[in-house]
Amino acid sequence: MSTSQHTGDAVVAAAKSAKHRDQQTRPGQFITYAVLALLTLVFIGPLLFILMNSFKGRFFISDAPFALPLGDYFVGLTNYTSGLARTNFFNAMGWSFVITVGAVAVIVFFTAMTAYYITRVKAWWTNALYLIFVFSMVVPFQAVMFPTVKIADMLGLSNPLGMIVLYLGFGAGLSVFIFSGFVKSIPLQIEEAATIDGCSPLQTYFYIVFPMLKPVAITVAILNTMWVWNDYLLPYLVIGLSTPYKTIPVAIQMMAGSYGDNDMGAMMAMLVLAIIPIVIFYLSSQKYIIEGVAAGAVKG
């Protein structure tokens, strides 16, 4: 009896001292903060470096890359104006925006319906379809790249609207997979109740099921936004360089790839402009992005 009492006391004491130790190791905590502060610098540094150099004269960027844009080095917005003139950047930003928003809306809308159908209706072909969608997630883009581009060309899909169709096709695998996982967890009784109350299947889906899919829809939307917005190869190969529909990555690559007069200053300015929308998007919906990406990773 008394032994167990003692053991109990010892446990409490040990737990207390463990807690005590965790909170009280000031030097340890200081080192942790120092390491984290250093890492913050490593993670923000490259962005600050680009921002800083975007305000410097084009030749100082290679001569004095780490100098602050002050005095002779400072050229105001010259780099921005010349970069914008060369790339027609705002046009590219507009098309990036149209294609991303269009593709993501279409992907969320149609793949959610598809996932719902193939999860609820059991048939040989819905099973097969599910497996083919999962399979498509594994196949690298290069394996289908050449035929896809040629077929898209034959079908007249070499334009922003066609890009949205192609993105629906490429995004279907992961999106259907994520939606299906969630639909499985919705109890069938809810839909049956809706049917008894006189809902048609379409009404049941749009009034009852789709609203319940909202959290997964956010995950799917975020994963696809990050992919489509940053995608380079598909728009480059399908739409090409000689059309007005260039997206941001295509415009940046074209600017850097143009030999001869390589204007570093303009390049820095365009990199800054390319990063700004991403930072705004990230800071405005940071919580959803981090959760969505983590959820997508565990599933994918």
């Binding site: 083919i132 498509s136 394996a143 289908v144 077929i151 899909l157 629906l168 096709g169 279907a172 695998g173």
Partner: peptide
């Protein structure tokens, strides 16, 4: 819609 887009972008090209 999903099947058609998937066929054009992925299944047939594969």
């Amino acid at each position: 819609p999903t099947i058609i887009a998937f066929a054009i972008a992925f299944a047939v090209p594969f």
